[in-house]
């Protein structure tokens, strides 16, 4: 019986909301799969949508973007810009054949540890469904 595919998921979280929410999930000892690796930025507004394309090139099978709820952004407007940018990115990715199950975006506030756990589980499950993402992957560089 083949081992279930373990997807490699990169997550970009904003410092003030989702990163804190994930911290809360940790403090509350909620358990979730170990496939998600977090990169901390100060605001979802910082996240260049092309990071997602780059992540796929660098071997990720799935990407999560998460930040503050609209209206609650620590920097007032950053997540509004993120929302627009990722709406366009998502349309583009789906159009060129990237399974929508590979890209997740969520609003998780600093008090929503449980929601973060749900987002992780959803992302891992759906990435498992569509399997490893080889289409964009760069060949490993052996220096």
């Amino acid at each position: 019986m083949s081992e279930q595919f373990k997807p490699n998921i990169v997550a970009f979280l904003c410092n003030w909301c989702t990163y804190a929410g994930a911290d809360l999930a940790g403090t509350s000892r909620m358990q979730y799969p170990a496939n998600v690796h977090i990169i901390r930025v100060m605001c979802t507004g910082r996240i260049n949508p092309l990071f997602v394309v780059n992540a796929f090139q660098q071997g990720a099978d799935g990407v999560i973007i998460s930040g503050c709820h609209p209206g609650d952004c620590h920097y007032m407007e950053g997540n509004f810009y993120a929302r627009r940018r990722f709406t366009m990115l998502r349309e583009m990715l789906e159009y060129v054949g990237v399974e929508p199950e590979r890209f997740h975006m969520s609003w998780v506030s600093a008090s929503e540890g449980a929601k973060w756990k749900d987002v992780v589980e959803e992302a891992v499950e759906s990435a498992q469904k569509v399997g490893p993402f080889d289409q964009f992957r760069r060949n490993k560089i052996n220096w």
Binding site: N8, A55, A60
Partner: peptide
């Protein structure tokens, strides 16, 4: 939080 500081993080976490 420069692009050139974040891209290596992505490279490592992606597995490349």
């Amino acid at each position: 939080f420069k692009d050139e500081q974040i891209l290596p993080q992505i490279a490592v976490l992606g597995g490349m």
